[in-house]
Nucleic acid binder design. Structure first.
Length: 477
RNA sequence: GGCCUCAUGGUCAAGCGGUUAAGACGUCGCCCUCUCACGGCGAAAUCAGGGGUUCGAGUCCCCUUGGGGCUACCA
C-alpha cells in the first residue's frame, strides 16, 4: 500500500520550527517510501484564525523544500484540503457515529456543565444527555435548541495501541471524558475532524506531536466504531526553548521565516531541525534534503525533548557558506551585503572572498567589512604588540619606508604588495610580521580585521592606502 | 489532583547486559598564519538518586526526584 502522510497545521499565526520539523519528518517518511505527503489546513477554530497565516504555511513549505503532493493550493483527489470547507462532511459522519453508538447529542448548557466541577475544579461530563430518547432529541432539535455531539467513551476498559516511537500506550477509558466532537456552531473539533479526514484522505501513517499521544486511544475508539482501519501512529518529542518551555512564537522567536530573515542558510535550517530529535545511523551531520530522505529512519527518532541550540544552527549555516560556490554565495548574501557601509565602494568579489570563511549567517557580513569605512583616529597603543615585535617606536621609524615601498608598486594587488613588504622586512632585518602588523594598523586602525594588511590594501586601492598611511604617520607624530 | 510520557557532558546525541561510555556544537590549549577567521591536533566535561534482577547494568524491573503533555464547544 502506498504510504500517505500529512501535515495538518492550524492557521493561527506563524509556522514555527517545531511544526516545520513535524512536517519535515512526514515528508521524509513518505518520500523515502515513494509515498505522498499531504497538506491539510485545520481551521475549525474560527476564533483563532489569523489572516495570512495560510499563505505563510504555503510559502514556508515551498521555500524550505518540504513540499506536499496534495494540498489546498495544489489540489489532489482527496479534497477539499481545508477543514472549514468540509463542514457538511463532519456533520454527516457525526450523525452516523451517533447511530453507531459512538457518540450522542448533548443539550446541556454551560451552567449545568459548570455545576459538574469536582473538588479540584475539573469538569467531567456525566453522560447526562445519553439518556435522552430519540423523540426527546428530535423535539429539542426541531425546537432549535443548540446542541453538541459528544463522543460516547466506555466507562470501563482501556484502549491500547502501538506507537512506532513510544511503544505500547494504554489509557483507561475512565480517564477519558466524553469530549465534544461537533461544536454548537456545527464545526468539528480537532478530536473528530482529524479522524474523519485522516481516514477519508487515506492517511496511512499519522506523524504528529507528542501532545496527542495520550488522546489517541479515543481516536481509535472512533476508527473502531466506524469499522475503519486505524493508521500507524508516530508521535514526536517536542522541541524546547529551554528545559521547561516549548519553542513557540509566543516565546519570542523561532519561525522559519525569521531565521531566513536573519541570514541563516535555508538548507541549514532544515538540516538542523532534522537533527533535533532524530539522529542518523552514520555520523554525518551536514545533509541535503535528498540525503535526509535517504537516511531517515524511525529508529533514529528519540523520545525525549530536545533543546533548540542556536549556536549549533549557526555553525551548520557557516558550513554551508564555506562549501558554497562564490556565485551562489554572492547571490544569497546580496540583501545583507547592501547593508554594509562598504557596499558599492569596493570590488565586490574581493569583499565577499574576505568574508566567506568569516561569517556563519549572512547578516554578519556588514559587521565584518564595515571596518573599511571606519577609519578614524585610533589608539596608538595598537602598534604595541610584543608577539609581532611591533611597537610605536618601530612603527614611527618604519612607516615612512613602508609608504615609499608601496608608492613604487605599480601592479597593485595582494600578492605583489605582499612580496614588496616582505622584501622590505628582509632589507630592514625586521620580522615581516612586524611590518605587516604596522601596515595593517596604519591603514585600518583596528586590532582585528577580516583580511591581512595586503589584502586590505588591495581592496582599498593605492590612493586610499597611501592616504591612510600619511594620516597614520601624522598621528604617530 | 488524575492519567500518559521522558531522563547519557553546557547543548544535540551514539549506546540496545560485558566499550578506555562514540561523534558533533560550544569551551579551553597547541600548531598553522599577514591580525581575525579558516584548517589541523589535543584537552576538560555525561550515565538524576535509591533499591532490585544478574557473574556482570547507562542498558532490564520497581520506587523517588525532576521535565514535558493531556485533562477546552484549542489544535
Amino acid at each position: 500500500m502506498k504510504v500517505r502522510t500529512r501535515f495538518a497545521p492550524s492557521p493561527t499565526g506563524y509556522l514555527h520550527i517545531g511544526g516545520l520539523r513535524t512536517a519535515l519528518y512526514g515528508y521524509l517518511f513518505a518520500k523515502q517510501r515513494g509515498g505522498d505527503f499531504i497538506l491539510r489546513i485545520e481551521d475549525t477554530d474560527t476564533t483563532r484564525y489569523v489572516d495570512g497565516s495560510v499563505q505563510i504555511i504555503y510559502d514556508t513549505m515551498r521555500d524550505s523544500g518540504v513540499m506536499y503532493d496534495e494540498g489546498p493550493d495544489v489540489g489532489g483527489d482527496y479534497g477539499p484540503y481545508v477543514q472549514s470547507e468540509r463542514k457538511d462532511l463532519y456533520k454527516e459522519y457525526a450523525e452516523k457515529l451517533v447511530e453507531l453508538g459512538g457518540a450522542y447529542y448533548c443539550f446541556c448548557d454551560s451552567e449545568r456543565i459548570a455545576s459538574l466541577k469536582d473538588e479540584n475544579g475539573n469538569v467531567r461530563y456525566d453522560k447526562h444527555c445519553l439518556n435522552l430518547s430519540k423523540e426527546e432529541i428530535k423535539a429539542k432539535i426541531d425546537a432549535g435548541e443548540p446542541y453538541v455531539i459528544r463522543q460516547n467513551v466506555p466507562l470501563e476498559g482501556s484502549g491500547s495501541y502501538h506507537d512506532l516511537v513510544y511503544g505500547d500506550i494504554t489509557v483507561d477509558y475512565k480517564d477519558i471524558e466524553d469530549g465534544i466532537l461537533l461544536k454548537s456552531d456545527g464545526m468539528p473539533t480537532y478530536n473528530f475532524a482529524n479522524v474523519i479526514d485522516d481516514h477519508l484522505m487515506g492517511i496511512t501513517h499519522v506523524i504528529r506531536g507528542i501532545e496527542y499521544l495520550s488522546s489517541t486511544p479515543k481516536y481509535n475508539l472512533m476508527y473502531d466504531a466506524f469499522g475503519w482501519e486505524r493508521p500507524v501512529y508516530i508521535h514526536l518529542p517536542p522541541i524546547m526553548k529551554d528545559a521547561q518551555h516549548k519553542l513557540s512564537k509566543r516565546n519570542g522567536d523561532a519561525s522559519y521565516a525569521d531565521f531566513v530573515e536573519k541570514g541563516y542558510v535555508k538548507q541549514s535550517i532544515i538540516n538542523y531541525i532534522a537533527l533535533l530529535g532524530w539522529s542518523p545511523k552514520s555520523n554525518t551531520e551536514k545533509m541535503s534534503l535528498q540525503e535526509l530522505t535517504d537516511n531517515f529512519s524511525l529508529e533514529g527518532i528519540s523520545k525525549s525533548p530536545s533543546i533548540f541550540d542556536d549556536v549549533k544552527l549557526r555553525w551548520l549555516s557557516g558550513e554551508y557558506i564555506k562549501e558554497m560556490s562564490m556565485e551562489e554565495f554572492k547571490a544569497n548574501c546580496y540583501p545583507f551585503l547592501k547593508d554594509s557601509k562598504a557596499y558599492g565602494k569596493y570590488d565586490e568579489d574581493k569583499l565577499l572572498s574576505l568574508v566567506k570563511t568569516r561569517v556563519q549567517i549572512y547578516s554578519e557580513i556588514p559587521s565584518k567589512i564595515d571596518f573599511l569605512e571606519e577609519f578614524t583616529a585610533y589608539d596608538l597603543n595598537l602598534y604595541e604588540n610584543s608577539k609581532q615585535k611591533s611597537s610605536i617606536a618601530v612603527a614611527k621609524d618604519v612607516l615612512p619606508k613602508i609608504k615609499e615601498v608601496l608608492s613604487n608598486v605599480t601592479d597593485w594587488q595582494n600578492s605583489t604588495l605582499f612580496t614588496a613588504l616582505v622584501d622590505l622586512s628582509t632589507k630592514l632585518e625586521i620580522k615581516k610580521q612586524a611590518i605587516l602588523w604596522i601596515t595593517r594598523i596604519a591603514i585600518t586602525g583596528k586590532e582585528a580585521t577580516a583580511g591581512g594588511a595586503t589584502e586590505v590594501a588591495d581592496i582599498l586601492g593605492k590612493d586610499k592606502t597611501l592616504e591612510r598611511i600619511d594620516y597614520s604617520i601624522n598621528l604617530l607624530g
